[in-house]
Amino acid sequence: MSVLNKNDFEYAGLNSRDDLQAVMGAVTLPSAPAMAEQVTDIPAMYGNQFNGMDYTSRTISIPITIIARGSQDKYNQIMHNLSGLLLSDDPSDNGKEYPLVFGFEPKVTYWGHVTAISDPQFINQGAWDATLTITFVQSDPRATLPQVETPLKNGLNTITVDGTARTEPVIQVVPKRDLKHIGFTLNGGEYGLGPDSDEDQAVAVKPYTQVVNSDVLNTMAEWTNDANAIAQMKTAGKYIYQGEADSNRDTQVLMVKLANGVKQYGTHQPDWYGPGVRFTGMTNSLTNYRVKTRIHHIKHSGTHNGRAMGRVEVLLLDPNGATIGRFGLADSAGGGTPTCYLQITK
């Protein structure tokens, strides 16, 4: 977007000076939209019955000057460019409105459409410099100011924005704990989410029921690396489960065991190898469920950093031990960028 000077305007992303090659004149903004009084003439009544006012569109006239510098070719080029950019012959554009911003009030945006481009009036005959007027109409006569975003605090929130017209807020609620009730008033109306009575709040239904608590890995009681248990865990490619895994009580992380300063991956193999463990925490089958996990992939550097060295993944198993979900990170051969993958079966 070009820099908007005070004597420029921008319509649909087009700068008047750089794109339209025109100089904007003095723009007088109308003080109000077109208004029409709605009344009913009732026979034998003194006066008439007032039924309200219609506030319709607002029209902004933008005078511009084309500087052709004595060249008819330059004048023709600017005129073709002007009409081609401001007016569209694409039927899909019909009905669209675009933003208009003036350099003398860059924070105010008017949404509307061009309804007319007047015939040019030459300033000096033979100089090919001309003036004309672009007619811009707003179907909604209001203008908009920059959006104000503010987080809500506990208790009563009063948010004041610039401008003279009423505006409707957009409220986004992102619960961080069990949500029972949130309420707010909007231009005199009261709105709420969730039950608002003490009786209903006491028995509010949680969206999720926690079946398995977060495993803190303190005891490894529900984890096993028994050969029969982990042999059923199928993943892509050739792999060999071997070595040992351990838990860190401070960070609650499950990782390859470190013994005497050496990671216990097991003996060298030509394919992927390392420890695999299985966690059995759910005691019943659920139709809908949500599992949260976190994995950490480390990319080593050094003599062999061009090799595919690290692969870590989480497998989701059905009651029979078959893999129904897979999420992981792995190095690529030849020192390529690590790959992230997600697989889910139906």
Rank of each mutant, 00 (worst) to 15 (best):
R69Q: 13
N248W: 03
D89S: 13
L100C: 09
T115H: 01
P141V: 07
A204R: 10
N305V: 02
C340E: 12
Q242P: 03
W128G: 00
Y75T: 01
S83C: 12
T133A: 02
T303Q: 12
S31H: 01
P338G: 06
G103I: 07
S57I: 02
N15K: 10
G70I: 08
R17T: 12
D162H: 04
A12E: 12
V3M: 06
R142F: 08
Y208N: 05
A330H: 03
M233E: 04
H297Y: 14
I134S: 06
R166H: 07
A34W: 02
Y191P: 00
H181K: 02
G328V: 09
A322V: 13
L316S: 01
D8W: 08
D198A: 15
S332E: 15
D250T: 15
N157S: 05
N76D: 15
G306S: 12
S139W: 01
P146L: 07
Y239Q: 07
H268C: 00
P270I: 03
A259C: 00
I324D: 04
Q232I: 13
Y341F: 15
I324H: 01
N320L: 06
V277N: 05
G325K: 02
G243F: 08
T323K: 04
A143I: 00
R69K: 13
A143Q: 10
A12C: 12
G281A: 03
N15Q: 10
W272M: 00
E222N: 15
T115I: 13
V39E: 13
L29D: 06
I62H: 11
P91K: 08
D331V: 10
A22R: 04
V161K: 07
L317N: 11
E105W: 01
N124S: 09
T209M: 02
M45K: 14
H181F: 09
Y46E: 12
D331G: 07
K346Q: 14
L179V: 04
V277Q: 11
G310T: 15
A22T: 15
A221K: 11
G70Y: 06
I344A: 08
T59S: 09
T131E: 15
A26Y: 06
D73H: 08
L342Y: 07
H296R: 14
I298W: 01
D246Q: 08
Y208L: 13
H113L: 10
Q49M: 09
K263D: 05
R311I: 02
V3D: 11
I62A: 13
L29T: 04
Q201G: 15
Y11A: 08
K74P: 00
D89M: 09
D331I: 04
Q172S: 15
M1K: 05
L315A: 14
I134W: 09
P195I: 07
D93M: 10
Q147V: 13
V3R: 10
K206C: 03
R278A: 05
M79W: 11
Y55R: 12
D200F: 10
A127H: 09
I123Q: 11
L258R: 12
R177A: 14
H181L: 02
V27P: 06
K107Q: 12
K107E: 14
K6D: 13
E10S: 15
K234C: 01
G274Q: 07
G274Y: 09
S332L: 08
F104K: 07
L87W: 00
D196I: 01
